[in-house]
Design a protein around this nucleic acid. Structure first.
Lengths: 348, 348
DNA sequence: TCGAAGCACTATACCGGTTAAGTGTCAATA
DNA sequence: TATTGACACTTAACCGGTATAGTGCTTCGA
């Protein structure tokens, strides 16, 4: 049994390919009776249109692309992307649109992939993640006139529509929560400083600290557990060790917790820990980690809708998703310490 | 600047489309000089063939598919799939082949997707993961005559070529390692019992225990931290609590470690813990978890090669990858306990 | 010196859809 | 009764490649 084409259906129905096409696509040009008959035959044969033929004919690929440029070894543990993809899929599959998903080594490779995909008509548009400060990708996509939307702040997406959360407000939530618990020495372990969302959170953190009149320091990392652990160690051994740390992802928070425990620093007695992005990992460890939760899958859904509209030539405006909410767990508590610096534990 | 087609190149070179096609594809039929000229023009225009046109013409989609049927919330934390995809990509991208990646809710949806993809010519073949005991997918793919390879034991892949590791040998490694440390009461927390790899490991575990003349029990779970934690709790509170537990993934091992610590069971003093599949998570926690390591990305590479051969109509035989090796860390140690049962900690 | 073979290339059909333009039939209208 | 127009379809071009069958020219051998 060959895969049937509209020509097969046309032959059986005693009409031409065009009539079949009209009937299948709900176009005028065939009578109701004929349409019925054609649909019945199509159904009986299990007809599905060839995506290649349709793509060639109407000029759209029926697929979108998502490229992630992060080292694979850290990615596996980032629930963010899987949630995002799950959300995107849920929306796309309804419309029969496929998702090309690729991981690359660096941004140059990512850009080359966009060029190739677009030149080959492989995709109708792409989702951008991890917006960077002077992001070459934005200009390239604009020049290519390739439909694209960004997950991240509109401040970094240039002409591209964005789906974003109010990270500034979320930082405020965390800072006031911690100050409410009596903490006066805060720290934050951020991600790559070249990422917009990392910078925005960093700035917001510094500003909120100034407003609240307290000590706050942000340090950079690369989202891996190694650097998260290093940063924690340095902070705790520093001149003015923090009594609370906000980590930019769950993995680093976990690493930080582990380091604190190894150093004999009690959590939450001496140190409170908060993670940005909640996941099973946060619930899993002991003490469970207080986290900022957002609905990442919902963000994916919105992004998919936005890109579909954009690719269809409709106007597409930024979408602001709900601000992350704080899920309180056992890793945060009242600050038990005087403003005086900690005694430094002897180096192992 | 429109995206150039072979017709544009032909016009510039003063030849026909056919000549251009011959030149670009290294076919005979054009002189060396003309070929040079055509290639130069193609290069100058930045020509890339339309994937849709090529797909329509030569009947292949230039893409493979990978569908994962697991709840998204657990997937995010499974490094296995990301590593596998990274390996697959690395190999496919060299040949300009794309990967359609999708997550679904259940097996019925997965099968529907295969049918749709095949009918629509969207893919030239698919990668199968999580082989199950009587796996409907295998029969469906055979009936569709759709090229497919499996990641997992050939015992479960039926007529499909497989890329696999010798899990039985790996189980043997772990069991003899643990008995060498003096453990006599072993347990294993497996995944879904309907998965072939889970069953194979389970059987191998039981057999190895019989051979070594010791107590061994396997319990089932769903790879989530919740069930991993539950299983650990039950085992430790049971009649004959194990002194060592092998977990089928890193996440459950982590959950098990956490539960043990909450129950006041010392690791590795009273309980040794081993994880199947190594990852950053295993190094991150305290004590770090001893794990079975395999090169998952390499497995992906092999799988991609195999599927490319299969889709090209070449013969494709099973490929056996190296047996996982044990990476010793702090979560395992000499058994300090008498064969007598543990005292049950009072329930919290 | 003529036929055959080889070469370089053209003309064209084809893959499977979509769609603009054209055709024949019938009913409504002037 | 001739004209118009709506309807239901057909014809054929088109998307951008690939592949097969030709065509005209050169070269070689008998």
């Amino acid at each position: 049994m060959k895969r049937p084409t509209i020509a097969d259906i046309a032959a059986r129905a005693g009409v031409t390919k065009a009539a079949v096409s009209f009937a299948l696509n709900g176009q005028p040009g065939v009578s109701a009776a004929t349409r019925e008959r054609i649909l019945a035959i199509a159904d009986e044969l299990g007809f599905q249109p060839s995506s290649a033929a349709r793509a060639l004919s109407d000029g759209r690929a029926g697929a979108f692309g998502l490229v992630i440029d992060r080292p694979a070894r850290t990615l596996g543990i980032e629930p963010f992307f899987v949630q995002l993809i799950a959300g995107i899929q849920a929306e796309l599959s309804a419309g029969g649109t496929a998702l090309l998903f690729t991981m690359v080594e660096d941004q140059a490779a990512e850009i080359e992939l966009y060029r190739a995909w677009w030149a080959q008509h492989r995709v109708d548009g792409v989702f951008l993640v991890d917006l960077q400060l002077r992001d070459r990708r934005v200009g390239v996509l604009r020049d290519l006139r390739m439909p694209a939307i960004a997950f991240g702040s509109p401040r970094g997406s240039g002409p591209l529509p964005a789906v974003w959360q109010d990270d500034v407000a979320a930082v405020g939530t965390v800072v006031s929560y911690l100050t409410g618990l009596g903490h006066r020495q805060l720290a934050r372990v951020g991600g790559f400083p070249r990422y917009w969302h990392s910078k925005l959170r960093s700035d917001a953190f510094a500003k909120a600290a100034v407003v609240a009149g307290l000590d706050a320091v942000s340090v950079e990392s690369d989202y891996t557990s190694e650097l998260g652990a290093d940063a924690t160690r340095k902070l705790l051994l520093g001149d003015r060790p923090p009594t609370a740390i906000l980590y930019d992802n769950d993995l680093m928070a976990l690493a930080g917790l582990s380091v604190a425990q190894q150093m004999g620093v009690d959590v939450p007695g001496e140190l409170s820990i908060v993670a940005w992005d909640d996941s099973k990992l946060c619930e899993l460890v002991h003490p469970a980690i207080t986290a900022l939760r957002r609905d990442i899958a919902a963000t994916g859904v919105q992004g998919a809708r936005l890109l579909m509209r954009l690719a269809a030539g409709e106007v597409a405006a930024n979408i602001c998703e709900p601000t992350p909410v704080l899920v309180e767990r056992a890793s945060t508590g009242r600050c038990a310490k005087r403003p005086a610096p900690l005694e430094e534990p002897a180096p192992a």
